[in-house]
Nucleic acid binder design. Structure first.
Lengths: 244, 244
DNA sequence: CGAAACGTTGAAAGCTCTCAATTATGGTGG
DNA sequence: CCACCATAATTGAGAGCTTTCAACGTTTCG
């Protein structure tokens, strides 16, 4: 439930802590199997577990002053902006293990809203504190650089000029890959976001997305029932995603 | 000219060095007026001035192993990818003071080509060395985080779903702002990139860009002669960029 | 059960693209 | 210095993909 500030003393109860970390963006530097025990302790010292946020709840809002970043521990988050005409633009979806708020470092304010799509649990890191730790532990600094760099790539990917089919295929494969990376099935999964959100994220009309999904189903590439997706022909989808 | 490795001893001849730095992405932490003399020395110690690259020359290529990032010292650089079907996608244009290569940290390979659009001079930083300095000098680490975060914002901006007119208006104002930030005129400037590149960057056909520019001229919003641009009605452009 | 939100399907309109032709522009060689 | 070619930019017309508008089916939940 509520928000628990984790003091340094918390290291004792390792069990559950490490569970969380196994899916976290800092997992690689943070896990006990890893060689950097020191990093582990430092991180655990400054992390706060927060949540659950319920569906529709805001984690932060556009223009909130920046101070913390989050790792998703459970659930799904979407980030989005609303422009001056009131048009919403979904910027990203975040699954367990992924990081939110990195795009706020520069403007020093969150440049988007972050909204829970289901029950969401997060790890919260004070960014100044994290930066301090990062300057002492190279692995953590490195990981932050990597995460930031990765987000540039993700945004560039989204900006690519591609057809509706390419976008949808790439999106589904992307989600599948991210689930797979966390040990879930890459062929069958549940989408926790609405069609409208997916369509908006892909810069398509909801109707277009619907039609593309139907076409893919008719071609036997996948099966969709509501928010349940089963990928039947990853090869073909891959080809489509690359622009076949 | 050739590439000069700057040893620590170089600090002596300050004049020209500081000239360069005044337009560099590290200017704020690096300039002598700033409070961090130490940062200045550390950076000067590991920077290499390289160039000129001539128009069309590659600074790095897709899949080159990552090792260095660059600050543009003079000239203009474009970055772009070429997808499996041979379609080019311009990712960005970089003016003096801006940083290239940050999106290569994560994949550990450059995910794009970087090509000189005119005579280009760069400052080259070994990234590992820079990271080491960053862990010793908080201001530099902070600046790197900022630069990375800023690039996420830039890429997201590009990914936004906007009409041709919105894109073109925003692009021109963006360039104007970046020139202005460096002390040049924001109302009149020279574009060092071809129409095709601009169009591609904006995810438009070259013909569409041409038509939008004509429309803007006919409406008295700007004057274009070849690559010379004069912004006549920034207000109106701003309104268009926001989606009027 | 019924309202409301969500998702799908159909038809028509629109914006942008593609194709084609024409006009500049720039560099090269005579 | 001018002719000439190659490249870049502009303009026009038609096609196409995606969007918009509208209606209908479905699911959720009070």
């Amino acid at each position: 439930m509520g928000e628990l500030y984790k003091s340094g003393a918390v290291f004792a109860d390792d069990g559950s802590e490490l569970q969380f970390c196994s899916t976290c963006a800092f997992g690689s530097v943070c896990l006990p199997g890893g060689y950097d025990k020191e990093a582990l302790r430092a991180l655990h010292c400054l992390v706060e577990h927060v949540g659950p946020y319920r569906e529709g709840e805001y984690i932060f809002r556009t223009n909130d002053p920046f101070g913390v970043i989050y790792a998703v521990r459970g659930g799904t988050v979407k980030t989005c902006t609303v422009d001056s005409l009131g048009r919403e633009q979904v910027l990203g979806f975040y699954l367990p293990g992924e990081m939110i708020g990195l795009n706020a470092i520069h403007p020093e304010r969150y440049p988007c809203d972050a909204i829970a799509l289901d029950a969401v649990y997060l790890c919260r890191f004070s960014f100044p504190a994290l930066a301090t730790v990062a300057s002492q532990i190279p692995g953590i600094q490195q990981q932050l650089f990597r995460l930031l760099s990765k987000d540039i790539g993700a945004a560039s990917q989204l900006a690519a000029d591609r057809s509706a089919e390419e976008r949808v295929a790439a999106f589904l494969l992307g989600i599948a890959g991210r689930f797979a990376a966390r040990g879930f099935s890459a062929s069958g999964f549940h989408l926790s976001m609405a069609r409208t959100d997916i369509a908006n994220y892909l810069r398509l009309a909801a109707e277009t997305l619907s039609r593309v999904l139907r076409r893919f189903q008719d071609q036997g590439l996948l099966a969709v029932e509501g928010r349940e997706v089963e990928i039947r022909d990853p090869q073909a989808l891959q080809a489509l995603a690359r622009g076949a």
